[in-house]
Nucleic acid binder design. Structure first.
Lengths: 157, 157
DNA sequence: TCCATATGTTTAGGTCACTTAACTATATGG
DNA sequence: CCATATAGTTAAGTGACCTAAACATATGGA
């Protein structure tokens, strides 16, 4: 079943939060895989549809390929798959006829939103158990952790 | 640069922590990619080495393929690559000669540990900014969030 | 003891999501 | 109006995965 990462338990000598973050990363990666499986789509295609469904309808293949970290050529394949599956339509941009707008279909938007909501509702529910002061600390911690990961990513070797 | 996920900003109507978790997931996925790139290895191979480096030296291909969510046949390819790169050795188990033990080389262990430490140290450092009570809340939240992701993953459709 | 069955690993062959490079079409500034 | 840049696609190739089958070893019961 597991379709993604799965990290080993780190070898002691780190903070409990650090272990917890690694477990969290693994769990969230597995959830992404589960989401894709449930929608019977490739993980890349789900990511693409998430962006498209949240866009203003003017998102094009080039911009999207950059966001997903794949080449424009690969993006053509992704869009081909999504269009064939009836999840979106290509529409020529009227003002710049080089551009293509990726317009999600009604059904695709509601399916993406619906499936995502199952996850996001679960996450929303977590906050009920915490006081406002605790929630403030949690939010600060999550932001700092995100920044720490980002710092590691952009760290020069 | 971006080699992984990258989620869109969710469309409102959710808790700040929920948005923060999605940003965190994206950031951690990108960090995993950066880790692999820095070690000049495939993401799968890095995951494999993480498990092997943290093992008791008796970890075999079948068990590891299960942990990584790939088939045993694919695992053979992974082990071939890692062995060719000098990161591990295959050793026949003496008590059950069907089994192969994946023994990491000295250099591989120190490289994996060294690179991982750069990340884990960053994460450890985060905790300094919080009080013990806040840290307790953070730890509870992280555990609950992990469980929420896991619940979503195993949710029957 | 010997065989049926189960388990760990590898081999063989195929698939498909990606890559790079080249091509078409459109935009734009000098 | 042409040189150059940009959006998108096509073409050809690569490699990390898959399924299926083979092989080696273990194990429990007749």
């Amino acid at each position: 079943m597991a379709s993604t990462p799965a990290q080993p338990v780190p070898a002691r000598a780190h903070e409990p939060e650090t272990w917890a973050l690694r477990a969290l990363s693994t769990a969230s990666a597995e959830a992404s895989g589960a989401l894709a499986r449930r929608m019977r789509m490739h993980p890349t295609d789900v990511s693409a549809m998430s962006h498209i469904a949240a866009s203003d309808g003017r998102l094009g293949p080039r911009e999207l390929s950059g966001r997903l970290g794949i080449t424009p050529a690969a993006m053509t394949d992704v869009v081909d798959r999504l269009e064939a599956a009836g999840h979106l339509q290509r529409r020529r941009d009227t003002t710049d006829r080089r551009r293509v707008c990726l317009v999600p279909t009604e059904s695709a938007v509601s399916e993406v939103r619906g499936q995502l909501r199952r996850l996001l509702d679960r996450l929303d529910a977590l906050t009920e158990e915490f006081t406002p002061a605790e929630r403030d600390a949690i939010q600060r911690y999550l932001a700092a952790a995100t920044e720490a990961y980002h710092g590691f990513t952009t760290e020069d070797d």
